[in-house]
Deep mutational scan, measured.
Amino acid sequence: MTEYKLVVVGAGGVGKSALTIQLIQNHFVDEYDPTIEDSYRKQVVIDGETCLLDILDTAGQEEYSAMRDQYMRTGEGFLCVFAINNTKSFEDIHHYREQIKRVKDSEDVPMVLVGNKCDLPSRTVDTKQAQDLARSYGIPFIETSAKTRQGVDDAFYTLVREIRKHKEKMSKDGKKKKKKSKTKCVIM
């Protein structure tokens, strides 16, 4: 069974824990209790493949930012979460993405942009803004509501699919490099 290491990042209060708990335990946590770091595991079937999701729910508070490099190193894919009623959390996505790329030393890291709290009427981040940002990053965008469960499975499952595509691409690139290195030079 394939294991996928997913990391949920975003500013404090955007609903990272609520999304994760909704996926794992099928219930909505409405009281806000700032996370330092929590880890969850769940076995699911995605596109006919049974897999184990190892999900790291991270601290959004700035005082825990020193811990970010460590979990970013171990993560295979990242859910970059903002709240649709919090423009600052949307603007912060850029910083999370840049930090992930720096730590992973790669421009090509599996990510999904997630606009959470889409059940709320007080939207300050337009869907088109988020779609445009995701398009500019070359990553999928999904709106979710941890409260109603809308888009929750889709967000995590899409990230797994992005990781699969990335692994497939990397193995193809690896095979191309191996083929090239088999060419021999004969000096007579």
Score class of each variant (00 low, 15 high):
residue 39 S to D: 09
residue 28 F to N: 03
residue 42 K to G: 08
residue 59 A to D: 02
residue 19 L to D: 13
residue 10 G to F: 02
residue 60 G to Y: 01
residue 43 Q to N: 14
residue 62 E to A: 07
residue 54 D to E: 14
residue 21 I to N: 15
residue 33 D to A: 03
residue 64 Y to M: 06
residue 17 S to T: 13
residue 44 V to E: 12
residue 18 A to F: 02
residue 34 P to G: 05
residue 52 L to V: 14
residue 10 G to Q: 01
residue 58 T to F: 00
residue 32 Y to E: 06
residue 3 E to D: 13
residue 58 T to A: 06
residue 58 T to W: 00
residue 59 A to C: 06
residue 45 V to D: 14
residue 63 E to G: 06
residue 23 L to I: 08
residue 51 C to K: 13
residue 40 Y to Q: 01
residue 44 V to G: 14
residue 63 E to N: 08
residue 60 G to S: 03
residue 56 L to I: 15
residue 43 Q to A: 11
residue 13 G to N: 10
residue 32 Y to C: 06
residue 7 V to I: 09
residue 30 D to S: 14
residue 43 Q to D: 13
residue 19 L to G: 15
residue 15 G to V: 00
residue 56 L to Q: 05
residue 4 Y to I: 14
residue 63 E to A: 06
residue 7 V to R: 12
residue 59 A to F: 01
residue 14 V to I: 14
residue 40 Y to S: 01
residue 29 V to G: 11
residue 52 L to A: 15
residue 24 I to T: 13
residue 16 K to I: 00
residue 18 A to S: 09
residue 52 L to G: 15
residue 13 G to I: 10
residue 26 N to A: 13
residue 43 Q to I: 08
residue 39 S to F: 04
residue 15 G to C: 00
residue 32 Y to P: 05
residue 46 I to F: 09
residue 12 G to M: 10
residue 55 I to P: 02
residue 16 K to A: 07
residue 52 L to K: 15
residue 50 T to Y: 09
residue 61 Q to A: 14
residue 14 V to H: 12
residue 38 D to N: 05
residue 36 I to M: 07
residue 60 G to I: 00
residue 28 F to Q: 04
residue 38 D to E: 04
residue 21 I to M: 15
residue 29 V to T: 12
residue 62 E to C: 06
residue 29 V to Q: 14
residue 48 G to Q: 10
residue 31 E to N: 10
residue 53 L to F: 12
residue 26 N to S: 13
residue 15 G to L: 01
residue 47 D to N: 10
residue 18 A to Y: 02
residue 45 V to M: 14
residue 62 E to W: 04
residue 38 D to W: 02
residue 28 F to C: 06
residue 48 G to F: 05
residue 37 E to W: 01
residue 59 A to E: 03
residue 17 S to P: 00
residue 64 Y to A: 02
residue 62 E to Q: 08
residue 3 E to I: 07
residue 47 D to H: 08
residue 63 E to W: 03
residue 57 D to W: 02
residue 37 E to F: 02
residue 63 E to F: 05
residue 33 D to L: 02
residue 53 L to Q: 10
residue 5 K to L: 03
residue 9 V to L: 10
residue 8 V to Y: 02
residue 32 Y to T: 05
residue 55 I to N: 07
residue 41 R to D: 11
residue 64 Y to H: 01
residue 29 V to N: 12
residue 50 T to G: 10
residue 64 Y to S: 02
residue 22 Q to W: 10
residue 33 D to M: 03
residue 3 E to P: 15
residue 20 T to N: 11
residue 34 P to K: 04
residue 39 S to K: 05
residue 61 Q to R: 06
residue 57 D to G: 01
residue 62 E to T: 07
residue 43 Q to W: 06
residue 28 F to R: 04
residue 64 Y to F: 12
residue 16 K to Y: 00
residue 32 Y to G: 04
residue 8 V to H: 03
residue 18 A to N: 13
residue 57 D to K: 01
residue 13 G to A: 11
residue 42 K to Y: 08
residue 6 L to P: 05
residue 53 L to P: 06
residue 59 A to I: 00
residue 36 I to C: 13
residue 20 T to K: 03
residue 32 Y to M: 05
residue 28 F to H: 07
residue 36 I to Y: 04
residue 60 G to H: 00
residue 30 D to I: 09
residue 7 V to T: 12
residue 31 E to C: 11
residue 55 I to A: 08
residue 45 V to I: 12
residue 29 V to A: 12
residue 26 N to W: 06
residue 40 Y to H: 06
residue 10 G to R: 01
residue 64 Y to W: 07
residue 45 V to H: 12
residue 57 D to A: 01
residue 21 I to C: 15
residue 42 K to M: 12
residue 2 T to E: 15
residue 47 D to M: 06
residue 62 E to Y: 05
residue 13 G to R: 08
residue 53 L to W: 08
residue 8 V to E: 03
residue 26 N to L: 06
residue 22 Q to K: 12
residue 23 L to G: 13
residue 31 E to D: 13
residue 38 D to L: 01
residue 39 S to A: 15
residue 45 V to E: 14
residue 28 F to T: 05
residue 43 Q to H: 12
residue 57 D to E: 02
residue 51 C to H: 13
residue 52 L to R: 15
residue 27 H to W: 09
residue 7 V to S: 07
residue 3 E to L: 08
residue 25 Q to I: 06
residue 56 L to C: 09
residue 57 D to P: 01
residue 2 T to M: 11
residue 49 E to H: 09
residue 17 S to I: 03
residue 33 D to S: 03
residue 3 E to G: 11
residue 42 K to F: 09
residue 13 G to T: 10
residue 14 V to N: 09
residue 34 P to I: 04
residue 17 S to R: 02
residue 15 G to P: 01
residue 45 V to T: 14
residue 3 E to T: 10
residue 13 G to F: 14
residue 25 Q to L: 10
residue 38 D to Y: 03
residue 12 G to D: 14
residue 60 G to E: 00
residue 25 Q to R: 07
residue 44 V to D: 14
residue 12 G to V: 07
residue 49 E to L: 04
residue 58 T to Y: 00
residue 26 N to Q: 14
residue 27 H to D: 15
residue 47 D to K: 08
residue 22 Q to A: 07
residue 12 G to K: 06
residue 63 E to D: 11
residue 52 L to W: 12
residue 56 L to Y: 03
residue 49 E to S: 11
residue 19 L to T: 14
residue 43 Q to E: 14
residue 22 Q to R: 11
residue 57 D to N: 03
residue 9 V to M: 08
residue 56 L to N: 04
residue 37 E to Y: 02
residue 28 F to L: 06
residue 48 G to V: 06
residue 36 I to F: 06
residue 9 V to K: 01
residue 44 V to C: 13
residue 63 E to C: 07
residue 53 L to G: 10
residue 63 E to R: 07
residue 28 F to E: 04
residue 22 Q to I: 03
residue 17 S to M: 01
residue 22 Q to H: 10
residue 31 E to I: 12
residue 38 D to C: 05
residue 18 A to E: 04
residue 19 L to Y: 07
residue 46 I to M: 12
residue 11 A to M: 13
residue 23 L to H: 15
residue 58 T to G: 03
residue 33 D to K: 02
residue 17 S to V: 01
residue 2 T to L: 09
residue 42 K to T: 10
residue 3 E to A: 13
residue 50 T to N: 12
residue 39 S to Y: 03
residue 41 R to M: 12
residue 22 Q to G: 11
residue 25 Q to S: 13
residue 31 E to V: 12
residue 36 I to E: 04
residue 39 S to Q: 06
residue 37 E to G: 01
residue 4 Y to W: 09
residue 57 D to C: 03
residue 24 I to H: 14
residue 31 E to H: 10
residue 5 K to C: 05
residue 10 G to S: 06
residue 7 V to H: 07
residue 46 I to W: 09
residue 44 V to H: 11
residue 35 T to V: 02
residue 4 Y to A: 09
residue 8 V to R: 01
residue 35 T to Q: 01
residue 11 A to W: 07
residue 38 D to F: 02
residue 40 Y to L: 04
residue 57 D to M: 01
residue 11 A to L: 15
residue 14 V to K: 07
residue 37 E to P: 02
residue 50 T to W: 08
residue 27 H to G: 15
residue 20 T to Y: 02
residue 64 Y to R: 01
residue 55 I to E: 02
residue 20 T to C: 08
residue 8 V to K: 03
residue 18 A to K: 08
residue 47 D to L: 05
residue 12 G to W: 08
residue 48 G to K: 10
residue 28 F to W: 11
residue 57 D to Q: 01
residue 16 K to E: 04
residue 12 G to I: 05
residue 64 Y to Q: 02
residue 2 T to Y: 09
residue 34 P to H: 06
residue 18 A to C: 10
residue 50 T to K: 13
residue 54 D to F: 03
residue 25 Q to M: 08
residue 3 E to N: 07
residue 56 L to F: 02
residue 5 K to A: 05
